[in-house]
Simulated assay, not measured.
Amino acid sequence: MKEVLLFKLTYCPHCMMALRFQEELLAEHPEWRDIPVRVIDEAQEAALADTYDYYYVPTYYVGGEKVHEGHTEKPDVERVFRLAAED
């Protein structure tokens, strides 16, 4: 199981949708609830955000690897959690 890291902005509508999809998927897939998830607001943690290579939010990393960036649909978030659940 790998850590999921999500960079977002507080008032970004795409980020809010990504978080909503994430909540829905965790409700649908209880086996994913143990996956460690860190949500980083890049405005609040700019120093950490600067150490990662991305240009748009939301941006998902799984195990340190960027797996999704920008506009997000539910299948995108599902893919993130499937990758995180892999051994």
Rank of each mutant, 00 (worst) to 15 (best):
A84P: 02
A18H: 05
K74N: 06
R79Y: 05
E45T: 11
E45P: 01
L26Q: 07
H68P: 05
I40L: 09
P75L: 02
R82D: 08
T51Y: 01
V67W: 07
T59Y: 00
D53L: 05
Q44E: 14
E86Q: 15
V80K: 11
D53C: 05
H29V: 05
W32H: 04
V62D: 03
P13T: 06
V37A: 03
F81G: 00
V37F: 13
A43T: 14
E3K: 10
D34G: 12
D34Y: 03
E31T: 10
A49T: 08
P13V: 03
F21T: 00
M1C: 00
L26H: 09
T51R: 14
H14Q: 15
P13L: 06
A49Q: 04
V37C: 07
E78R: 09
P30E: 09
P75I: 07
R82N: 13
E31R: 10
A49N: 08
H14Y: 15
R38Q: 13
Y55W: 07
V67I: 07
G70M: 03
D53Y: 04
A27E: 14
V77Q: 05
R38W: 12
Y60E: 01
V37D: 03
Y55H: 10
L5D: 00
Y56K: 13
R33G: 06
T51S: 14
M16V: 15
Y54L: 10
V67G: 08
L9K: 13
D34V: 12
D53G: 01
V4N: 02
E24F: 04
A27L: 11
T72N: 03
V77M: 09
M17F: 08
Y60C: 00
R79L: 06
L5T: 10
Y52R: 05
F81P: 01
Q22R: 12
V77F: 08
A84F: 04
V62E: 07
V4S: 09
A46C: 02
P13N: 12
E45H: 13
T72L: 02
D41L: 08
D53R: 10
Y61E: 01
Y54V: 13
V37Q: 06
C15M: 06
H29L: 03
A47E: 15
R33H: 05
Y54T: 11
Y11G: 05
V57D: 04
H68F: 07
C12V: 02
V67A: 10
K8Q: 13
L5I: 12
E42M: 15
L9S: 11
V80W: 09
L25P: 02
H68G: 04
W32S: 06
R38H: 08
A47G: 03
L26D: 05
M17H: 12
D50K: 14
T59S: 04
E86R: 15
P58Y: 03
E42D: 02
V4F: 02
V4H: 01
E23D: 11
E3C: 00
Y61D: 03
V62F: 02
L19I: 01
V80C: 09
P58T: 06
E28C: 08
A49R: 01
C15F: 03
A85W: 12
Y11R: 11
V80E: 11
Q44A: 10
Q22S: 10
L6C: 12
H14I: 01
P30R: 09
E78A: 08
H29C: 03
E24Q: 14
F81I: 01
W32Y: 09
L5V: 14
T59I: 04
I35F: 05
A46W: 12
R79I: 00
E65F: 05
